[in-house]
Simulated assay, not measured.
Amino acid sequence: MSEATDRPRSDAVPRHARVDVIGGAIVIFIAGLIWYGAIELNVGQLTRLESGAMPKALSILLFAAGCGVMAKGLMQRDDEAERLQLALGPASIVVIAMLIFGLFIRGGDFGIVSTPQLGLTVVGPLTVFIAGCATPNVRPGELLVTAFGLTAALLLIFADLLGVGVPVFPKFLQNAIPSSLGPDTATRLAYGIYGVLAAVLYAAVFGLGGDRRG
């Protein structure tokens, strides 16, 4: 039984120590970091989204979600509130994954830290894999299939079909792409390779007939 359940109901949890209040504040802080990193990027128009569309939309969604969670914590009755326990739970893992995505997808100077641009080819699989570790009974093989398959889909839809200016490659690799190849062809090669890799991993994990191998 958890400590929050064992404590007497008369022991009121201060608002500043409540799980939902602190969790909401962390999500709002991450949203602010992402917005700050993308503040000089253009959003573009609905028919032609530009590089600032994805990070700014993500920051707005995170801000709204954080405000909702924080408001819930502030309005909770004393006998319903839970005190924050310093443990790496599922919510913390998801927050870490979002923080990695926001800090490293484009990189930049965030005041506290400076991070390199890793692009969607690196941050995409990494974020999905870390976030997937928040689920019970984690299966690394299945997470790898999801990570590479989902990243391939994001590259196809956002970077290629919609033309959103999201960084695809790490900065050093992006600058090394030969002009004869071009960034568009390099992007298509990237999601093609990731798609094939996801299919190979799927066959290895589930078998050709789709049966689970554990």
Rank of each mutant, 00 (worst) to 15 (best):
G44R: 10
Q45Y: 10
Q45I: 11
Q45P: 04
T47S: 14
R48Q: 11
L49N: 10
E50V: 10
S51L: 03
S51K: 03
S51F: 02
G52L: 08
A53M: 01
A53V: 00
M54Y: 10
K56Y: 05
L58G: 00
S59V: 01
L62N: 03
F63Y: 03
F63H: 08
A64R: 01
A65E: 00
G66L: 13
G66E: 10
C67E: 03
C67Q: 05
C67A: 14
C67V: 15
G68R: 07
G68Y: 09
V69C: 02
V69P: 10
V69A: 09
K72N: 13
K72G: 13
K72R: 15
L74K: 06
L74F: 02
M75S: 15
R77Q: 14
R77V: 07
D78Y: 03
E80N: 13
A81H: 07
A81W: 11
E82H: 15
R83H: 12
L84F: 12
L86R: 12
L86S: 04
L86Y: 13
A87T: 15
G89Q: 04
G89M: 03
P90D: 09
P90V: 11
P90N: 03
A91I: 15
S92Q: 13
I93S: 04
I93Y: 08
I93R: 07
V94F: 06
V95W: 14
V95K: 11
I96M: 13
A97E: 01
A97N: 01
A97I: 06
A97P: 11
L99S: 13
I100M: 09
I100E: 04
F101C: 09
L103D: 08
L103M: 04
L103Y: 04
F104Y: 07
F104L: 00
F104H: 00
R106C: 04
D109N: 15
D109Q: 03
F110R: 00
F110W: 08
F110H: 07
G111D: 06
G111M: 01
I112Q: 07
V113Y: 03
S114R: 14
S114V: 08
S114E: 11
S114I: 10
T115W: 00
T115M: 00
Q117G: 01
Q117N: 04
L118P: 05
L120I: 07
T121E: 02
T121R: 11
V123M: 11
V123F: 05
G124W: 07
G124E: 07
G124Y: 00
P125R: 05
P125K: 02
T127H: 06
T127P: 08
V128C: 05
V128G: 09
V128Q: 03
I130H: 06
I130F: 12
A131R: 00
C133N: 09
T135K: 10
T135N: 07
T135I: 10
P136G: 10
P136E: 12
V138H: 05
V138A: 09
V138Y: 10
P140D: 05
G141S: 01
